[in-house]
């Protein structure tokens, strides 16, 4: 029993990281209809940027802040202006293909410009664990959970309680209606891209100590975020959270009780079952096809 709880706790922690990446994914989709196949590389790039800052002598917190600024400029504004804006009118497929191109380019640039090897990244939480009611919980898992929860709650508060946040929601739900109400839709969409960039940096901060900084580290996290978003419901923010945590926990359970060999596979099974049985996702709403 204890081991089951332990598996669920550590799975939830891993899942929380997936959820953060998935959250950015759904936000982009809601606001602008962008399916970003480079989402994983959007996590990889900040990991290396932080690494560079630290090699240059900056402490981790400063590296993190500097990277947030850089990410907002490059992965937020730059991504939107250079790639999404000119492409979105061609429809979903060209944009998806373009993000595939971006993903490939980013990986190669890091590999060729820096190195193909993995690099160590400092952990932000202490090693070791504590025991509570017979269950071992590691400090790293606890820290990850708390940090992820803080970010999600902050985001939720921003979206539901502030004027800007509500305007963003309105744009996501119905761009034209929002415009009629006098909302600056373009600006709201830009905000979404900025939030996505920051979420990517936080994800990088949490996941790189375990994944190690490597040019292709984004492949795994990007795919997980993608699955999590669909499982939970592509058009629902809460769906991304549920999907992420569900994948994290199930992976741990399958890896332990069945075989680690099919660990990756079971998240996929879940994904296939969900899209067949409830294609709009567990929490998603049926979407009218936009023509």
């Amino acid at each position: 029993m204890n081991e089951l709880i332990q598996l669920i706790v550590s799975g939830t922690a891993t899942g929380a990281i997936y959820a953060l990446a998935a959250l950015g994914f759904t936000l982009l989709w809601q606001a602008s209809g962008t399916i970003n196949f480079a989402q994983g590389d959007f996590v990889m790039l900040p990991a290396f940027t932080m690494l560079f800052c630290m090699i240059a002598g900056a402490p981790l917190w400063l590296a993190f802040l500097a990277t947030c600024v850089a990410a907002m400029l490059v992965l937020g504004v730059g991504f939107k202006k250079v790639i999404v804006d000119p492409l979105i009118r061609h429809g979903v497929i060209p944009l998806v293909i373009a993000t595939l191109g971006v993903s490939m380019a980013l990986k190669t640039i890091v590999r060729a410009g820096y190195s193909a090897e993995a690099h160590q990244f400092p952990a932000i939480f202490p090693a070791g664990q504590f025991t509570i009611a017979g269950v071992n919980v590691s400090w790293a898992d606890l820290g990850t959970l708390v940090l992820a929860a803080v970010i999600v709650i902050a985001l939720q508060t921003f979206v539901t309680r502030t004027l800007t946040g509500r305007a963003m929601q309105a744009v996501a739900q119905n761009t034209d209606a929002a415009r009629v109400l006098g909302i600056d839709a373009k600006r709201m969409v830009l905000y979404t891209f900025l939030i996505n960039a920051i979420l990517a940096v936080v994800t990088a901060l949490l996941i790189t100590p375990t994944y190690l900084a490597k040019f292709d580290m984004g492949d795994s996290i990007g795919l997980k975020a993608f699955f999590a978003a669909i499982i939970g419901g592509f058009n629902q923010t809460r769906g991304a959270l549920l999907g992420g945590v569900l994948i994290g926990v199930l992976e741990n359970l399958v890896g332990f009780y069945w075989s680690p060999a099919y660990k990756e596979g079971v998240a996929l099974m879940l994904f296939l079952v969900v899209i067949l049985w409830r294609p709009e996702g567990l929490l998603g709403k049926v979407e009218e096809r936009k023509v």
């Binding site: 081991e3 332990q6 598996l7 550590s10 799975g11 891993t14 375990t210 994944y211 190690l212 580290m217 795994s220 992976e251 741990n252 359970l253 399958v254 890896g255 332990f256 075989s259 680690p260 060999a261 660990k263 990756e264």
Partner: peptide
């Protein structure tokens, strides 16, 4: 007898298995 994937990034369940 714990098998893991090439390129595997998350070893939590594998390690737990060894511990148990």
């Amino acid at each position: 007898d714990i098998s893991t994937d090439p390129g595997q990034v998350d070893f939590s369940s594998a390690v737990l298995k060894a511990k148990q």
